[in-house]
Simulated assay, not measured.
Amino acid sequence: MNLLHRRICRSDAWATRMHGEVLPWVCRTVPLDGDVLEIGPGYGVTTRWLAEKGGRLTAVEVDPDLAAGVRAGLGDRVDVHTGDGAALPFPDESFDTVVCFTMLHHVPSPEQQDQLFAEAARVLRPGGVFAGLDSRLNLRFRLIHIGDTMTVVDPDGLPDRLSAAGLAGIEVDTVPRAFRFRATR
């Protein structure tokens, strides 16, 4: 991530907005009290919020430095693994819920995003929920990502992609700058 992007993602303002508005909106109907996997926690802003929800929380972060930061910041409240969301290091049917927030656009290609969706479905128990949020393309979003990986997910095409990964009951809701999704195995 570029310097501006890193600054935003580590800011108190970002954490306040995520904890107060965004995550409650995204997770309104998402069970967070069982075995929960977060893919791509980044700096851990969303992980801190999830850790307060009562579930047994596991996180997978591809960047070793970011994974170490989440591990150091949350201690034994979360089981942090360094790994790729498109190749999860867990057995089939390990989690009740899988979530990812504002990270799909950092996955380098649509094919790798699809593999991440398939992996989320694989590690979910039957009836489990895969949910998340990502940004929609706009000028501000593009400017924040100058020099970053930015593979924008089209929310209109997401239901077909999630269905192809083996998920059902797919819901996608959009607002001007973002979209949330929810699907079940």
Rank of each mutant, 00 (worst) to 15 (best):
E61W: 01
V175F: 13
S135E: 14
G147N: 12
R185S: 07
N2R: 08
R17Q: 13
P159H: 07
G73T: 04
E93P: 05
L50Y: 03
D114Q: 14
D160V: 06
T149D: 12
H81G: 02
D148T: 05
E119I: 03
L137W: 13
P41V: 01
R6P: 06
D154P: 04
G166V: 09
F181T: 05
T97Q: 02
E171T: 15
V153W: 02
T47D: 03
A68G: 14
L74Y: 06
L104I: 09
T184N: 10
G40F: 04
G83T: 08
S11W: 11
A59D: 03
R180Q: 14
F117D: 00
H19R: 13
E52K: 12
E61G: 07
A67T: 05
A87I: 11
G157N: 13
F101A: 00
T16A: 15
F141R: 09
D156C: 11
L143I: 14
W14V: 06
M18D: 01
F181K: 02
V152G: 03
G34C: 09
V62R: 09
A118G: 13
W14A: 13
S94V: 10
V62P: 04
V30G: 10
D96Y: 08
G40Q: 01
L104M: 15
P24H: 12
A51T: 10
M18Y: 06
R28T: 10
F130M: 08
A183T: 05
G83D: 06
I39L: 07
E21N: 13
A131E: 01
E171R: 15
P89F: 01
S11F: 08
S163R: 15
N138S: 14
R10I: 07
D84F: 03
F141M: 12
D114F: 07
T149W: 11
V175S: 13
D148V: 07
T174K: 15
G128V: 01
V45P: 03
I170M: 08
L23K: 05
C9V: 11
H105G: 04
V70N: 01
